[in-house]
């Protein structure tokens, strides 16, 4: 099976590759847009600044190829920043906003935290309205300060709760597998998430 990981700067490609290696998958790094269609599944990695990542995506015209890839019903895994970039818009602050890939309705916004510290760099327990969701009550590692403010509160999404603030942790729908946390850094729980993506 061929899974590719998109390189748009940012940090954690090597660790995503390492995590997939432990479950027997060798990822190829995608540097050119024409290569995206060669893969059955692709990964949008996380960590890094959104502005920098979006700039590289636009420069390389990855955006068009990503949209085509998704239209063709191919599975896509978005991790942290890779999830946030799927939204319509990124609001860095009041004066700095830019468009993203517009695949999921919503925008990435700075977490409103009066009672806790940012960035979130910690393990949190996943909550979900859906008792059958396999992520529920498991702990995963988060490292971010912007969150996905989804337009629709989908039953397929999970969240974490910090002092009554709900922050979206995952959004899984059709061929989209989007996680705010880092499965590649979440020990055995994380490997389970990656394994599920592998077995699709």
């Amino acid at each position: 099976m061929k899974i590719g990981i998109l390189n748009y700067g940012g940090g954690n490609i090597s660790n995503i590759k390492k995590a997939f290696n432990t479950i027997g998958v060798s990822l190829s790094v995608i540097e050119k847009k024409k290569d995206i269609s060669k893969f059955e599944k692709i990964i949008l990695p996380g960590m890094g600044s959104a502005q920098h990542a979006m700039k590289i995506i636009k420069q390389n015209k990855f955006d068009i190829s990503i949209r085509d890839f998704i239209k063709n019903q191919n599975p896509i895994l978005g991790i942290c920043l890779g999830f946030q970039l799927m939204l319509n818009k990124y609001e860095v602050n009041k004066n700095l906003k830019f468009n993203c890939l517009s695949i999921v309705k919503g925008s990435a916004k700075k977490i409103n935290s009066e009672t806790f510290k940012l960035p979130l760099i910690d393990w949190y327990k996943i909550e979900s309205k859906n008792s059958k969701n396999y992520l529920k009550n498991k702990m995963f590692y988060f490292a971010h300060q912007y969150f996905c403010d989804l337009d629709k509160n989908d039953a397929n999404s999970t969240y974490i709760k910090i002092n009554q603030n709900k922050i979206v942790a995952s959004y899984v729908k059709k061929n989209l597998y989007l996680y705010q946390f880092h499965p590649e850094l979440s020990g055995d729980n994380g490997l389970m998430v990656l394994n599920n993506f592998k077995n699709l």
């Binding site: 940012g10 940090g11 960590m47 890094g48 600044s49 920098h52 960035p119 971010h144 300060q145």
Partner: peptide, 9 residues
């Protein structure tokens, strides 16, 4: 470094 990798890193 923070501008490239994000302050969380």
């Amino acid at each position: 470094a923070s501008n490239i990798y994000g302050s969380q890193s």
